[in-house]
Simulated assay, not measured.
Amino acid sequence: MTIADLPPITPDPVIEAFKKDVDRTLLRENLRKTVDERIDAMQAAVDLAAEMRNATLARRAEVRAARRER
């Protein structure tokens, strides 16, 4: 059996509906990167998320302390 013998692929309407909302330029840009560059970018995103979480927790602690002082 060859590829020519297989039935044609019909597009899935659900996949087609989602494809319109995907920014393919970002996918292509990411695929041009090496594995190490992708890992570095992901690590930077994780570091940023942790920094934001810590800043949020610190700010909440400041607000709670200020409320207790009243």
Rank of each mutant, 00 (worst) to 15 (best):
P7N: 09
D5Q: 15
E69P: 02
M42E: 13
L6M: 15
L48E: 10
D47Y: 03
Q43C: 04
R70T: 01
R67Q: 08
L57E: 14
I9F: 08
T10Y: 10
R38H: 00
D23S: 13
L6H: 10
A45E: 07
N30M: 07
E69K: 14
R28F: 08
R70P: 03
I3Y: 11
M1Q: 15
V35N: 07
L48D: 08
L27G: 12
M1S: 15
E29H: 01
E29R: 07
D36C: 02
V35K: 10
D5M: 14
A41H: 08
I15G: 00
K20V: 10
R64Q: 12
M42W: 09
A61W: 04
A44T: 13
V63Y: 04
L31M: 04
R59Y: 09
K20N: 04
T56Q: 10
R68G: 13
I3E: 13
E62L: 03
E51F: 01
A61I: 02
R59L: 09
K19W: 01
A4F: 13
I3M: 11
R67W: 06
T10H: 09
R24T: 11
A58F: 06
M42A: 14
R64K: 13
V46W: 00
V22I: 15
D23I: 14
V14P: 05
A49K: 05
V14E: 08
A41D: 14
D12L: 05
T34F: 01
R60V: 06
E62Y: 01
R24C: 03
T2Y: 04
E29D: 07
R53V: 09
D36H: 08
D21N: 08
I3S: 11
R32I: 00
D36Y: 02
A65C: 06
R28I: 11
K33E: 00
A66Y: 06
I3G: 10
L31Y: 01
E16A: 12
D40P: 03
R24F: 07
N54Q: 13
A55L: 13
E29P: 03
A45Q: 08
L27A: 10
L48V: 03
V46R: 06
R68V: 12
A4R: 15
R60A: 14
A65R: 09
L6R: 13
D40W: 05
A66I: 06
A44K: 14
A50D: 04
A66M: 11
L6Q: 15
I3F: 12
E62D: 12
A41W: 06
E62F: 02
D5E: 15
E69A: 15
I9N: 05
T2F: 07
A44S: 14
D12M: 03
T34N: 01
I15A: 08
L26W: 14
V22H: 14
D12R: 05
I15H: 03
E37N: 12
A50E: 07
D23C: 11
I15E: 06
E29Y: 01
D5W: 04
M1F: 15
L31H: 00
D21I: 04
V46F: 00
E37G: 11
D23Y: 09
T2A: 09
A49F: 02
P7L: 07
I15C: 07
R59N: 09
L27P: 06
K33D: 01
D40S: 13
K19L: 07
A4P: 00
L31S: 00
R68T: 14
K20E: 09
R53L: 10
L48P: 02
A58T: 12
F18C: 05
V14K: 06
R64F: 01
A4T: 15
